[in-house]
């Protein structure tokens, strides 16, 4: 895993994509941002992906394959799974059953989408700074 490798954002909502994009522009990291519009597109991308991404951020509530189902499919595929750490979920909903299921599928974090973009920026910065120091299996590929 390269600290400057791409950050994958799996998000079906164009407004949320815009919020994230604007925040990443302000954060000014070197990582390329790759937006994937739904679970199917994400799977397709992950299957052919050569590089190990620095970070994967996924929405929970998406059409066809939701964030937890998508993580479950990633977990089933050992070749992809090892590249998909850290895998972070963002959702409006923070119901206990979702959180339980998501961690069972091997995510590294679950965050409630905040209302205030300033707060979202603080969360993203914390996540990225933390993972810059943390070791992950993808580093040894």
């Amino acid at each position: 895993m390269n600290k400057n490798a791409p950050i994958l954002i799996i998000e079906d909502d164009i407004d949320d994509q815009k919020f994230l994009q604007e925040i990443f522009i302000k954060l000014n990291y070197l990582n390329e941002l790759v937006f994937l519009n739904d679970g199917e597109e994400a799977i397709e991308y992950l299957m052919q992906m050569k590089k190990v991404p620095f970070l994967i951020i996924s929405d929970l509530n998406m059409p066809k394959i939701n964030g937890i189902e998508l993580r479950a499919r990633v977990k089933e595929n050992q070749a992809i799974n090892i590249k998909c750490v850290p895998y972070i979920l963002f959702s409006t909903t923070v119901a206990k059953n979702y959180i339980d299921d998501a961690y069972t599928m091997g995510i590294q974090g679950y965050f409630k989408k905040p209302i205030d973009p300033v707060e979202l920026m603080a969360i993203l910065k914390t996540i990225i700074e933390y993972w810059k120091f943390s070791y992950a299996p993808g580093m040894y590929m």
Binding site: D13, D15, D16, F19, N61, T92, T93, A95, K113, I115, D116, P117, V118
Partner: peptide, 20 residues
């Protein structure tokens, strides 16, 4: 209730952005 939360959060975020 769950499905109502998403559009509402976005309204709140847009208002916050406009005010900021």
């Amino acid at each position: 209730s769950h499905d109502l939360q998403e559009p509402l959060r976005k309204i709140q975020t847009f208002v916050t952005i406009i005010l900021q």
